Simulated assay, not measured.
Amino acid sequence: MGYALPHAVHDPHYETSDTPSREAHPDQADAASNLSDLEQVVLRLENQFPRHSARKNERIRRDLRISTTRYYQILGTLIEKPEALAFDPTLVARLRRLQHTRASERLARREIRQSLSRATQEKIR
């Protein structure tokens, strides 16, 4: 599935100091060559806007022409790729930690609910 990214890919706002260049960061440039334009723009946008905000959602819809739901699906898949880790190790490591923390919290809440449900069932009997 191809996405038209004419202004997002070439927008100077996405060209940050950590934009890959073969001279400065050969590993990052190699990683970038293995990521699609969309994947690179998603990582740059996430780096630029690390928190949920109306402004970030607007940039996603306007620049990438995709829904925010699709953006986060792409991002979730992307952070599992070694190429993404090589492209921006700090960002991807942070996102992986966040994902792990949230999954642990969901699991803990689920276990509490199940425990409470079992206790309720025992009282009913």
Rank of each mutant, 00 (worst) to 15 (best):
M1T: 06
G2A: 09
L5R: 02
L5P: 02
A8I: 04
A8Y: 06
A8T: 04
H10T: 14
D11A: 14
P12V: 13
H13R: 14
H13T: 04
Y14H: 13
Y14I: 02
E15V: 10
E15T: 06
S17I: 10
D18C: 10
T19I: 02
S21G: 05
S21V: 04
E23N: 05
A24E: 11
H25V: 01
H25T: 09
P26C: 09
P26V: 03
Q28M: 12
Q28E: 13
A32R: 05
N34L: 14
S36E: 03
D37T: 02
E39L: 06
E39W: 03
V41T: 07
V42K: 07
V42Q: 07
V42H: 10
L43P: 05
R44H: 11
R44A: 14
E46H: 02
Q48R: 15
Q48E: 09
F49S: 05
P50R: 08
P50Q: 07
R51S: 12
R51F: 11
K56N: 03
K56I: 01
R59Y: 13
I60V: 15
R61P: 00
R62Y: 09
R62N: 11
D63S: 07
L64H: 04
R65V: 05
R65K: 15
I66M: 14
I66F: 07
T68A: 13
R70C: 01
Y72Q: 09
Q73V: 12
Q73E: 15
T77H: 12
L78R: 03
L78Y: 00
I79K: 02
K81Y: 02
P82M: 08
P82E: 14
F87K: 00
D88F: 00
P89S: 10
P89C: 06
T90W: 04
L91F: 05
R94T: 06
R96K: 11
R97P: 00
R97H: 09
L98E: 15
L98A: 14
L98R: 14
Q99H: 14
H100T: 09
T101D: 13
T101I: 05
T101Y: 08
T101H: 10
S104A: 14
E105W: 01
E105Y: 04
E105I: 03
E105S: 05
R106F: 04
L107I: 00
L107P: 00
A108K: 09
A108L: 11
A108H: 08
R110W: 02
I112K: 09
I112C: 01
R113M: 10
R113P: 00
Q114V: 00
S115A: 15
L116T: 01
L116F: 02
R118H: 11
A119F: 07
T120F: 10
Q121N: 11
E122L: 15
K123C: 12
I124F: 08
I124C: 05
